[in-house]
Amino acid sequence: MAPPDYAPPRSLWALYLGFLSIGARSFGGVLPWAHRVLVEEKRWIVPADFAQVLALCQFLPGPNVGNVSVVLGRRWFGARGAVVAFLGLMALPLAWVFALALLYAGYAADPAVRAVVTGAGIAGGGLFIGTALKLARPIARRPWGVAIGIACFAALAIGRVSLFAVLPVALALGWLAARSGRL
């Protein structure tokens, strides 16, 4: 049971504004802001419930927090809620990213600007690798897990094999390893 001070949004407009405020502030990652707005500020959903919804959304394809907006919007206002929450989340970030890209296009001929942006992009690639290392902690001592992870990396990054070929093979091998307790 939810404590009495947790309550769903009162209207579609409130739902829209809530997700708009998540998108508006989500510098450096949306997830911390989604938690802050939905659980702490608006108190629309209890923490444990939020964690469950997030687990589902990380497991499904698509943008994680985008999926959260669809699941919660649907729960509170049906199909209209799902659409409204998703559009609220995307509206301001979409405008900003286009504005930033236009600004960048104006300076892209400047070698200094291009060098800075290239460096930041490479740093972003490094953040992906760091994130992969963090995600790998639970399988670090599982030889099958390490082997599957490295094989996926080598096929995609070095071999440049299509994801559509790698994914089914990787899932099949992972499933066999997980079912026999090796993962």
Partner: peptide, 30 residues
């Protein structure tokens, strides 16, 4: 079982994404 299956697969995919983004000019020391 499926959640455990996804861990090593996601690790490999995300690391590969990082690699292709970090090597726009090929594998150089910078």
């Amino acid at each position: 079982v499926f959640q455990r299956t996804l861990i090593p697969v996601t690790v490999g995919f995300v690391a590969a994404g990082g690699y292709v983004l970090a090597t726009p000019l090929g594998l150089d020391w910078r």
